[in-house]
């Protein structure tokens, strides 16, 4: 039985090998079929030579040129970017300077205006002070005048009243004496 199976297997193997269309070898592994070695080696060498030729003639110089080109472009772009950055920095500095200038200018103007206003204010204040002083003096004078007038009126009233009282009491009115007495009394 075992023999039979083996025979069948061998037959099938043989048939398959023949059907595959190659010269039937006893060695089952195609890798160990030494008859095909010269063929493979020949075509391998041809292939390698071809690839090597294409690579060294065309592909490698081109790719390395492209890579170098790209490197150059990147470096150039980076330098340009650096330039732009510097420019931007300069512009920023100029802007800052202008800003600072404007600020000092504004401060100067503000200070000037303030000084002017102060001056005006001082003048106006002095003016007002003077006026107020004058008015006050005038008022005082008037007040004094009024006060003096009032005192005089009081004296007169007192004199008249005293003379009237004396007359009412039946005395003889001596105007001078009454006036003197009243004055003395008021002073005392």
């Amino acid at each position: 039985m075992a023999t039979e199976t083996h025979d069948v297997a061998a037959d099938v193997a043989h048939g398959a090998a023949e059907a595959a269309g190659h010269a039937a070898q006893s060695a089952g592994m195609p890798q160990l079929d030494f008859a095909s070695f010269p063929n493979q080696i020949f075509w391998l060498l041809v292939t390698l030579a071809l690839i090597w030729w294409v690579l060294t003639r065309i592909a490698l110089p081109r790719i390395s040129a492209v890579l170098a080109d790209r490197q150059g472009t990147i470096t150039g772009d980076l330098t340009a970017a650096e330039d732009y950055k510097l420019k931007a920095k300069d512009a920023e500095a100029a802007y800052e300077r202008a800003l600072a200038d404007a600020r000092t200018q504004a401060q100067k103007i503000v200070a000037g205006a303030k000084a002017e206003i102060q001056k005006d204010l001082a003048v106006a204040t002095a003016h007002a002070d003077a006026e107020i002083g004058a008015r006050a003096a005038e008022s005082e004078a008037r007040i004094n005048e009024v006060r003096a007038g009032a005192l005089e009126a009081v004296e007169n009233v007192a004199k008249v009243t005293a003379a009237d009282i004396v007359a009412a009491l039946g005395g003889k009115v001596d105007a001078k004496a009454v006036a003197a007495a009243v004055s003395a009394r008021l002073k005392g």
């Binding site: 190659h22 592994m29 195609p30 890798q31 008859a35 095909s36 063929n39 020949f42 075509w43």
Partner: peptide
Amino acid sequence: MDQFIVKPLFGEGPIHWYTPTNV
């Protein structure tokens, strides 16, 4: 292992070193 068999591209016959094969 059949996929590894070296065969001539055109027709049958022995494989010489110059035969165009599937290799």
